[in-house]
Write a protein that binds this DNA or RNA. Sequence first.
DNA 1: ACATTTACTTGACTAAGTCAAATATCAGGA
DNA 2: TCCTGATATTTGACTTAGTCAAGTAAATGT
Lengths: 316, 316
Amino acid sequence: MTIHHQPDKAAPSKDLIDAVRAFNRFYTRQIGLLDEGLLKSAFSLTEARVLYELAHRDGLTATDLGRDLGLDAGYVSRLLKKFERLHLISRVTLVSDARQSSIALTPAGRNAFAPLNKDSHDQVAALLDRLPASEQDRLVNSMRTVQRLLDDSGEPKIPYLLRPLQVGDIGWITRRQGMLYAQDYGWDETYEALVAEILANFVKSFDPKWERGWIAEREGEVVGSVFVVRKSDQVAKLRLLYVEPSARGLGIGKRLVDECIGFAHARGYKTLTLWTNDILTAARHIYQAAGFKLIEEEPHHSFGKDLVGQNWDLEL
Amino acid sequence: MTIHHQPDKAAPSKDLIDAVRAFNRFYTRQIGLLDEGLLKSAFSLTEARVLYELAHRDGLTATDLGRDLGLDAGYVSRLLKKFERLHLISRVTLVSDARQSSIALTPAGRNAFAPLNKDSHDQVAALLDRLPASEQDRLVNSMRTVQRLLDDSGEPKIPYLLRPLQVGDIGWITRRQGMLYAQDYGWDETYEALVAEILANFVKSFDPKWERGWIAEREGEVVGSVFVVRKSDQVAKLRLLYVEPSARGLGIGKRLVDECIGFAHARGYKTLTLWTNDILTAARHIYQAAGFKLIEEEPHHSFGKDLVGQNWDLEL
DNA sequence: ACATTTACTTGACTAAGTCAAATATCAGGA
DNA sequence: TCCTGATATTTGACTTAGTCAAGTAAATGT
């Protein structure tokens, strides 16, 4: 199996752009509705946002607030002056820079913020409560996805992690491999069926001493996988290596293959073998770099295409 | 296989609420950033929103605009007066109600809106362009999910539709069934493997004349499925009936079974048989209602549980 | 040391939005 | 038919929220 090229970068389609714009309009209204509830308080919406930031983060400066909330510096200055007059905040000039000061809510400030916070919390709770639990999860997952994709504040701390198989994985891997190869190479549904069959057999006859699977996960999502199965006492087979297009370039493919080799070695196998197709060049590079040698090639007709299958072996 | 009860409704957890609130704060800022770009124009943000609505929907009244955009009636009135003064809109008093009028953009109005629209379009295009194509899709899918879940403006026009199998389905069905039965009944990963195996065989030995699968789709998402496979000239077997918890109560389960029966009948089978487990009560009700008779029961140990398997037959 | 930049403040201003009262019309019932 | 209460829109009077530019003081780079 294989690793693909970086996906092509065409101009985003009009459909996608329109969908994003529709969402923006929708959410503008949604936020407006939620904010209405907060308008009964003594604070304006922006004041409430500032209080929220102050309540949840320490050591903020006026500049931080303006930048993070997208506010004019003069406006922030006045807001803070008002809060100070009401004894809701205290400012301590920074030793590192006498122009700035670290702003913190006073106990009175926390008291003033508490009802705002509760209102907002209750309002969101009411919103969620209209949905069944399973849909609440879907909503929050989708929100997290949107936020993560749009928020380019750096890469995740942990680029990815490897874990063993769990329920749901084999279906997911089947689906993603089926779709990827259909999209990139035009393979038909028999490839997806083959993946399903391989994984079904893997689970059915799983022997933890001799076999293993690795799932690469990134931000809670499966982004790659690989399996080692026993062919004989001497020979292990690497199967179903794949990495999501969105997670390529992180070295996940190489890492997965290395894990397989390490495992096969530790278990005393003499040979690690694998079958792939010649068109899957990115995967081939990984195999070659890991020391696999091409043993034989043979044309075959599978998955609706004429292909050239390859067997590669690594002597351990 | 089976259909489950409506999911329980507990108070939303604090984690979920906090995640939604975090998203709201994030998106408030996000919208603020996008809107900044539009502020260079001669129109305010709200004016631009009004123009957008007018450009995309016909026959709006002032009240419609105020309601849909969450604006004060007096403010809308003034905005419209300004637009009228600039000859951007025309108003035609409704024959049905002389107080209201239908508002439409004039050609000049469309001209004025065009650059705004283009700026907004380009800005979103630029936003999307930072992401690889696969992530653009994920972003938009997630946005659509959020929008659909929060927008309670009635049920979808088409509650669901049935379609044949396509690439990606068998993995998805495998995953969802595996996860549902693990969650609801504690079945282990061997059940997911069984689903994968059944579906792999279905595809591998698929005979369109004698066999068929149906996927129930709702708003672009798979919410159920069922398969009929050939056991002999005389006997067809119904397999893997399932309906997503979020789509229950729409009669999808019954509809899927009816399709199976109709197909089996049309193909000249004499018997439609199926295997299920006694704990799957919702499914049993559907089978009974469709005329299936319980033929035999036997205890078995599978999927990490002690279960009672049942064979049901329907004479056609 | 000097020029430039950054953090914040302040005065002067305007756009954006709110609120309440007024007017015209409609819908339904006595 | 007229009356009552509601709805759609308008208008005047007002407040709030936010902008812009100029200024001060401290920090940073050269």
